[in-house]
């Protein structure tokens, strides 16, 4: 779902890289956030609500709403909408609040 041609903008994408999300290999371009790369792959469910375990996705995409928290390279509660994807990153969806023992 990446935009290849745009009437106003040109997207200068970085080098093609890969990271692992819940065991799946995801393509990203250097400079993209983890959320943008997952979204481009059609993955839009990022978290679950603490009590009712309802699915949650992005809301603000600028690091303010905490709807997209995941465990990234072992660090829980990482805001994937403002964290840039890096080659070989290990990204896990987490239980709602994250766990330091993961």
């Amino acid at each position: 779902m990446r935009i290849e041609k745009h009437p106003i903008l040109t997207f200068e994408r970085g080098k093609e890289i890969y990271f692992i999300f819940d065991g799946k290999r995801i393509k990203a371009f250097e400079g993209e956030t983890i959320a943008a790369a997952l979204h481009a792959d059609g993955i839009i469910k990022y978290n679950t609500s603490p009590k009712l375990h309802r699915p949650r996705g992005l809301f603000c995409a600028v690091g303010h709403c905490s709807s997209c928290l995941m465990t990234v390279n072992g660090v829980p509660n990482t805001r994937i909408c403002v964290t840039r994807a890096k080659e070989g990153m290990i990204v896990h969806s987490q239980n709602p609040r994250g766990d330091l023992n993961d």
Binding site: M1, P55, G57, A61, C81
Partner: peptide, 23 residues
């Protein structure tokens, strides 16, 4: 109103105009 796919307008703009990803 908490389902994935419900986004703020700014989030939609970030995805499509900064990262070039269709929301």
């Amino acid at each position: 109103n908490d389902l994935p796919g419900i986004y703020g307008a700014g989030a939609v703009q970030t995805l499509m105009n900064i990262y070039g990803v269709k929301p």
